[in-house]
Amino acid sequence: MHKDKPFSQACENNKGPILEKLADLFNQSGTTLEIGTGTGQHAVHFALHLPHLTWQPSDHPQNARLCLPWIEEAALANINPPLALDVIKGDWSNLPPIHGVFSANTAHIMAWEEVKAMFHGVARILPTDGLFCLYGPFRYNGQHTSESNERFDRSLRMQAGHMGIRDMENLKQLGETNGLSLQEDFGMPANNRLLVWRKA
């Protein structure tokens, strides 16, 4: 047992509700890329409960090894070693064939240029009808869905000017530009959403 596993309370809180949706969405065997694996808690939980999937963790090169304590302790045969993926520099060619993509709480941390690069990269690697599931808080027509999201957005922007909760209209446009159409917008606990894009 690793004594010093990194821990995210948000991951612990949201892994159950997200799994319920992913079990329906990713119901065929194949490899799912996780962008922004972070601590690895999601990777372990989803790989454990979705044994038909091979889970491919990835994160920014600075964070790519953060998930190793969780992944090594779980020792699941259907989790690949984590990959360093810089969405802008486009090291997307290092990936195995990908059937679906999942990312949680990344769009508001990334700079907008990185969000654009993520959509572009995802569209390149997904097969026709492949799904891209993006979890987090989002704005609609420039409006926050709750006071807590508004406070969170302010705190993000105070930490770093490039961060902030993204607007759905901009994301939808970004999807369309890259041949990804928004199929589902699920309400999730704690004022979050799960957005599901399908590659045309």
Rank of each mutant, 00 (worst) to 15 (best):
N14W: 01
W112T: 07
L174G: 07
K89I: 04
P17N: 05
N78Q: 13
Y140H: 04
P127I: 02
A64E: 09
N78W: 15
V44T: 10
I125Q: 14
A10I: 12
E150N: 12
V44H: 03
L85H: 08
L194G: 07
G130T: 02
M110Q: 11
R139V: 15
A75H: 12
R154G: 09
E34R: 04
P51T: 07
E169D: 12
F46K: 05
P17L: 00
F138S: 04
K15R: 13
N13R: 14
Q41L: 13
T128C: 12
K3E: 11
R139T: 14
A10R: 14
H60T: 10
V44E: 00
K21C: 08
N78E: 10
K172F: 03
F132M: 03
S146E: 00
F152L: 00
Q173W: 08
V44R: 07
G38R: 01
H99A: 07
M118S: 11
P17Y: 02
G175L: 06
I35K: 01
G121Y: 07
P57F: 04
H52G: 12
L48N: 14
K172C: 07
Q62W: 02
I98F: 02
H144W: 02
L76F: 05
R157V: 06
V44M: 07
A111N: 06
E12Q: 06
T37Y: 04
D24P: 06
Q28I: 05
A107Q: 08
L85K: 07
E147C: 01
Q28G: 08
D129L: 12
V44Y: 02
F7A: 05
L134N: 13
